[in-house]
Write a protein that binds this DNA or RNA. Structure first.
Length: 256
DNA sequence: ATGGTGGCCCGGCCA
């Protein structure tokens, strides 16, 4: 099973790159974030033509998440169940080939003194409580998406640059660890040394200068983690014509 | 040097 997460920064703008990438890399389950589409504009038929079922949760200009699967897609749940908890369309879950998969887009937080920083911490706490409510120990679970948190100093190009900034603060990292404490592992780390990134700012030639962060994560339950055979960032997808500012992150799992 | 780029959709927000 090839499991992928990719923040596409507008699926409308990125659809040619996404379909090209699917054809070349054959994901079984693809979690997208920042589709920036309402449900009515999501191109279900395009993915169906490629052999995939899809679920989408989006309401227009901002956010929007999708779950795309060729292993089946059942028991779809959009959001956390209350608009106050959701803070936009940022989570969609479904069961794909026996795995409960969540595509998530954690609020950015903007800065430590911004009201959205508290919203980000609350959202991560709600993500944990949602897992407690909807998944049982022993379930096969994956939570994949743009967490807007770099788990460790090795996940940013220069820790000194980020002192006092969002994405690296201890409360965010603690909130992420509380999600993992449900029973999930950042399995990418099994196969990659520090210094591998998934996002680079469009500005200032950051990608070509290597100024990135690893904020796109695939957190999987232990039964899945032990089946992992590899994990990588496809940096090629960050190059070329009209790239997203994020690259796809891939985890491969052997059959059980 | 408090900028820069890109996406939404056309002025300003968001990342």
């Amino acid at each position: 099973m090839r499991l992928v997460t990719w923040n596409v920064n507008s699926l409308t703008a990125r659809l040619p790159r996404v379909t090209e990438w699917i054809a070349a890399h054959q994901p079984d389950v693809l979690c997208l974030q920042e589709t920036k589409q309402a449900d009515g504009r999501f191109p279900f038929e395009v993915f169906a033509g490629l052999g995939y079922e899809a679920a989408h949760h989006g309401d227009g200009r901002w956010n929007g998440v999708a779950l795309i699967s060729r292993l089946g897609l059942v028991d779809v749940v959009r959001g956390f169940g209350s608009p106050e908890d959701d803070h936009g369309t940022r989570c969609v879950a479904g069961t794909c080939g026996g795995v409960r998969v969540h595509s998530v887009y954690v609020p950015n937080g903007r800065s430590l003194d911004n009201e959205f920083y508290g919203i980000k911490l609350a959202w991560l706490a709600r993500l944990r409580s949602m897992l407690d409510e909807t998944c049982a120990p022993g379930d096969s679970v994956a939570v994949c998406g743009d967490f807007n948190v770099a788990p460790d100093d090795g996940d940013v190009w220069d820790p000194a640059h980020f002192v006092g900034m969002t994405h690296v603060s201890e409360p965010e990292r603690q909130a992420l660890r509380q999600v993992e404490a449900w029973g999930l592992e950042d399995v990418f780390r099994r196969f990659n040394d520090p210094g591998v990134f998934s996002w680079w700012d469009y500005r200032g030639g950051d990608f070509h200068q290597g100024r990135g962060m690893r904020i796109d994560l695939l957190l999987v339950s232990e039964d899945l983690a032990v089946r992992a055979t590899g994990a990588f960032v496809d940096r090629e997808a960050r190059k070329g014509e009209k790239p997203s500012d994020h690259a796809p992150v891939v985890v491969d799992l052997a059959n059980p």
